[in-house]
Amino acid sequence: MADYNLTISGTAVKPPQSFQVVIQDIDAKATRDAHGNLHRDRIATKRKISVSWAPLTLSECKVLLDSVKDEFFSVKYLDPWDGGMVTRTFYVGDRTAPALTFIDNMGGYYWKNVSFDLVEQ
């Protein structure tokens, strides 16, 4: 069975609750002519991965945020276009950890809805 775990900076992180890959075309220049036709100079196709997690323990959240602390880092993930696991270099957008809460039936404090975007270099 294939291993589809998300790995960031060499660390297999807790599986996210939400995982969305956006495939983006990067243009150096795009213009329209007098007929309204688009002329573009596509220079690359890059990925942006939007991820979020269900409640994380304090230590799970620390491991996750530590994995994205560098300016650039490797991410191993399941890519829909490549049809398998790939490793690419990414950077992280804003990291959101909106609510620290005590969940009695889980026995402690948890960060809820931790999320960020991983953007391919």
Rank of each mutant, 00 (worst) to 15 (best):
I23C: 03
G10F: 01
S67F: 00
D41C: 00
G10Y: 04
R42W: 02
A99G: 06
H39N: 12
V22S: 14
R47H: 01
Q20H: 13
K46T: 11
I103V: 15
M1T: 08
K69A: 14
T11Y: 10
T7C: 10
R40D: 12
K46S: 00
D117Y: 03
N5D: 13
H39F: 14
K14S: 11
L78G: 04
D104G: 05
R40A: 15
D33R: 09
R88W: 10
F116E: 11
N105Y: 13
A2N: 07
A2H: 01
P15S: 15
S59D: 14
V63I: 15
V51C: 12
A99V: 12
D33Q: 05
K62P: 01
S59Y: 07
Y4T: 14
D25W: 03
G93A: 14
S67D: 02
P55W: 09
G36V: 09
L38D: 07
G107H: 08
D104F: 05
G108L: 09
V51R: 10
S9L: 00
D94C: 02
A28T: 09
A54R: 09
P15I: 07
P55H: 11
L6G: 06
W53D: 03
D82K: 04
S18M: 10
Q20A: 14
D82F: 03
L56D: 07
F72C: 01
G84S: 11
V68G: 03
